[in-house]
Amino acid sequence: MLDFVTIGAALLASLGGLFLLWHGWKTHADMRLRAACVALLWSMSAAIWIWRFGAEIGIPLALETAALVAFGFILTRMERREERPARKRAAIVDAAASSSRGSWRRYVLGTVRVLVAGPLGLIAAMAIAVVIATRTPMAEQTRLILAGLIVPTLWAIGIGWVVCHRRLAVQAASFATIGAAGIGLTLLAGA
């Protein structure tokens, strides 16, 4: 029974914050006071989850239930629209893409992009992680795990950077420099 009440209160606080936010969004009201109330309600919700389940479990529970509550709420506010037939447009022929020279160029550039984002990006991320794993003043497991978590994060940022910009030279040079610096530092530390 106690669980039912606590979980219900946490969900209500989360929903209350969301409702206030939605109301302000809908009426274009001044958001300063509203934002403070929303922050207070969401903090209350998180505090209830943490009080009931402890910080380790309470924080992820607060985030996950907030996401579900938000999407459930948005579903109830769905705007229905009339089906509209898609507009017919004349086909655009990309001359560069359709020519054999253009497609070869695209394949070569694509392969280089994959190499820079993939192996080179991973080497750069690992180089930073190696420095964290070997040189930071923490317990050895903490160093290893934090460095391990940093690798996919940095690698993902690197992939994003490579795929979002047409010019590859800057990214390739940066990754190579970071990789060389990390390996150099590790070798120096080992010597």
């Binding site: 936010l21 969004w25 948005i74 769905m78 705007e79 509209r84 993902a156 992939i159 994003g160």
Partner: peptide, 26 residues
């Protein structure tokens, strides 16, 4: 993870459309 990062950065109207869910139409 990379597509989550780029997706968030590509989202210009993240606040403007925070509650908008249109169904039907196009």
């Amino acid at each position: 993870l990379a597509s989550l990062f780029t997706g968030i950065l590509a989202h210009r109207r993240i606040l403007k459309d925070a509650f908008r869910l249109r169904w039907g139409g196009s």
